[in-house]
Each structure stands twice: as structure tokens, then as C-alpha cells.
């Protein structure tokens, strides 16, 4: 999920970075990315209008704690670089599936 107003150029850069990160850290499987752009007034954080992005990743498992932390840390790093947001505006989660041939990543806010 990502907040309304995110530029198409940023989305393209984020997709490229998500694919590169996945390939570099977890072996280069194909990555599917879907977006949900959240309009103003639909999401709140701490009871106030939210500017957060939520990146929900479904990947092949099992992974180690170190692998997950490195993978998610990298996403936070390029997300802040590309969008200008802070670490506190990013939620990254991982769901593991066994024998998943394709990685799925969805970004929301």
C-alpha cells in the first residue's frame, strides 16, 4: 500500500528496487508486485491521518532471522531514499510460503 499522490516515477523506481533486492538476497526468482494506492481519509496511524507505506512480502521459506532482517532493512533503506519518507513511515512484513515459485510483494499505505 502506498499513500495517494506517490509519483509514477517513484513507483517504477520502487518496483525496480524491490526486484533487485529480492534477486540479490533470495536468489533471483520472478517477483510479482501489486499496488494499492490509499486515498486520503482511508488510513490512520496512531489515530491520525497516515503517511505510512505498508510493504507486505510473500516469499519462499523458510528464512533465517538474519535473512529476514537484512531483506527488510534493505527495503527500508531504498524506500526512504526514493520517497523521502522516514523509517517510521514504513511497515515491512514477510509471509513465508513453502515451494512458492514466484515472490509476491504488495505495497500499500
Amino acid at each position: 500500500m502506498q499513500a495517494e499522490g506517490t509519483a509514477a516515477q517513484q513507483q517504477s523506481e520502487l518496483e525496480q528496487a524491490l526486484r533487485s533486492n529480492h534477486a540479490a538476497q533470495l536468489g533471483g526468482a520472478e517477483v510479482d508486485i501489486s499496488w494499492r494506492l490509499v486515498e486520503s481519509g482511508q488510513m490512520f496511524t496512531g489515530g491520525s491521518p497516515s503517511s505510512s507505506s505498508v510493504i507486505a512480502c510473500t516469499i519462499n521459506g523458510p528464512t533465517t532471522l538474519t535473512q529476514r532482517e537484512t531483506y527488510m532493512r534493505s527495503i527500508c533503506d531504498f524506500w526512504t531514499d526514493i520517497t523521502g519518507c522516514t523509517d517510521h513511515e514504513i511497515v515491512v512484513s514477510i509471509s513465508e510460503v513453502l515451494d512458492l515459485s514466484t515472490s509476491h510483494e504488495s505495497a500499500n499505505s
Binding site: L65, R68, M72, I90, V91, V92, S95
Partner: peptide, 13 residues
């Protein structure tokens, strides 16, 4: 329910 180590927020697990 999601295990804590599968979520990073605020830059930390």
C-alpha cells in the same frame, strides 16, 4: 497473528 521477527517498523524488527 504474525511473529514479531517477520515485521520491521520504525527501522527495527
Amino acid at each position: 497473528e504474525t511473529e514479531a521477527s517477520f515485521v520491521m517498523e520504525g527501522g527495527s524488527l
